[in-house]
Design a protein around this nucleic acid. Sequence first.
DNA 1: CTCTATGTTTAATT
DNA 2: GAATTAAACATAGA
Length: 268
Amino acid sequence: MPELPDVETVRRDLDRWIRGTRIVHARSADRRVLRPNAPSAFARALVGRTLRDVARRGKWIRIELDDGTRVFSHLGMTGWWVARDGDAGAERFERARIDLRRREHDSSIRYVDSRRFGRLVVAREDIAEWSALGPDPLVDGIDTRTFAAALARSRRSIKDVLMDQTVVAGIGNILATEALWRSRIDPRSRSNALSAADVRALARGLRTEIDRELATRAAPDGAEWNDTFMAYGHAGEPCPRDGTPLVRVVQSGRTTTFCKKCQILRRS
DNA sequence: CTCTATGTTTAATT
DNA sequence: GAATTAAACATAGA
């Protein structure tokens, strides 16, 4: 589920479901997802409060309550939120539920996460993970000068640097793979070897791919996980641009798929 | 049974 | 000390 466009889609859903409602029950027994808080603290902080707004930076969602309490949600690899009727039974892999009172009938939102890499953190102020995030492409935009400076600072591969949440928040394996394909840059290129034109192309590629994925998720058929990618997940298939078979390499433990012909290795 | 997976943190190694 | 890399986490699906 996770990566900027997916998380933004969840943020919009949550905002629609919960803004202005009052929490009548809250429960989670999952110490792993709640870390470092205890289950009792989660319920105690939420019950009776009214939900204000839902913000997002990178892959983190921040829900603000009327007393200033903040609930941070990270979806990990397999997390998402669903809305149900107040009396609906538990979902498969449900890790937390928040029951809401609204005019006529009650509703309930559920956090579902099979692998439990996601987190739900209750705090009185912003948590370190949130504050450490770099600029968000939608909230702040990607400033070419700042972006270029950050890329020039590292000798790591451009693929690794793109996924560094302190450089740009919200880029995961898919966005990095797709943006590099769009900007015709070999993912193994050293970050500090990119030219000014490369940096501009990459910023554009990121923005284009984010907008495209957001539109895909907002489409009426609502497809959440349909394969609309040019390179990601297509190793061995022809590059949509020039037909050369896409190759697969592993960088920092993550699969990267790219075209050796049109994605050129930058060397300094 | 084996392999891979949209992510992050931490331990180990260079 | 900084930078890399591997392992770990927990579970599903091919």
